Amino acid sequence: MKKWYVIQVFAGYEGIIKADIEKSIEEKGLQEYFGDILIPSAKVKQFFDTSDPLKDQQLFPGYMLVEMEAVPEANRLVSSTPRVLKLLNAPLSKKEVERIAAQMRGDVLVSGESHRFELGKEVEIKEGPFAGFMGIIEHIDEESEKLTIMVSIFGRMTPVELNFEQVKQ
């Protein structure tokens, strides 16, 4: 039975390694032991490059996934491929494979930096005209990465809209 395994490889060579493995499978006639070979990547919005706003970005640089039967011939073929560092012997669970597939389809938000803001939490404003003020998070807009913070100005609570980067937790 074929299962998904992780291959640790030299980062930046994933495409070449995938082609090498596929060629070796065909040359040695081991197609029955192998399924798909994936380089997990997702379309990521690029703000600085307006010519191509959606660009493929690898989810796990230096790692690939291979669907195969863990027979000695298959293990040897993958492990002996140039630039392959290690074939991890433990298969991935169905849940892990589904999560990675969801990320590749774009069903799960992949962000380079995670912000863990919570409604009602007190934060310090670190930039802008209210720098140094403390406030309470009233609203979180994940999509535009903005917060509405209630700040006490002259003894009165006033809503202030700020970017995630302008606030320190």
Rank of each mutant, 00 (worst) to 15 (best):
W4M: 06
R83H: 14
V71I: 08
E118H: 10
M64H: 02
S80M: 10
L59D: 02
G106R: 07
P61R: 03
V110Y: 07
M150S: 14
V44E: 11
I17S: 01
L65Y: 01
R83Q: 12
K18I: 11
I149W: 03
P159F: 06
H115P: 00
A90S: 13
D141E: 15
I7H: 00
P40M: 06
E73H: 05
D49L: 13
E27S: 12
L59K: 04
L30Y: 07
K18T: 09
W4C: 01
S41T: 05
Q58T: 06
P72G: 04
S41D: 09
Q166A: 15
S41F: 03
D36S: 14
P72W: 05
K121Q: 14
L147I: 07
G155M: 13
Y33L: 12
G112S: 05
I21Q: 02
N89A: 13
P159S: 06
P129K: 15
Q57V: 15
Q57E: 14
K95I: 03
I100P: 00
V66Q: 04
S144T: 14
E32P: 00
K146P: 03
I16K: 13
A11L: 02
R99M: 12
G35P: 04
F60C: 01
L77K: 02
E27K: 14
Y13W: 13
I16G: 08
N75I: 15
V71C: 04
P61I: 04
A70R: 11
I140Y: 10
I100A: 03
V78N: 04
D49G: 00
S24P: 00
Y33D: 14
V6T: 14
E124F: 04
S144W: 09
M68N: 04
W4A: 01
D49V: 10
E124A: 13
G132M: 02
K94D: 12
N163M: 12
F48R: 09
Q8D: 09
M150E: 14
R105F: 08
Q8G: 00
E14F: 06
R99L: 12
A11V: 08
K146F: 05
F48V: 10
V123G: 08
V151Y: 06
Y5E: 01
E165F: 09
K126R: 15
Q58P: 01
G155T: 11
E127H: 13
V84G: 07
I17T: 04
G106L: 08
M68C: 05
A102N: 10
S114C: 08
F60K: 00
V66D: 02
P40N: 08
E32R: 15
R99Q: 12
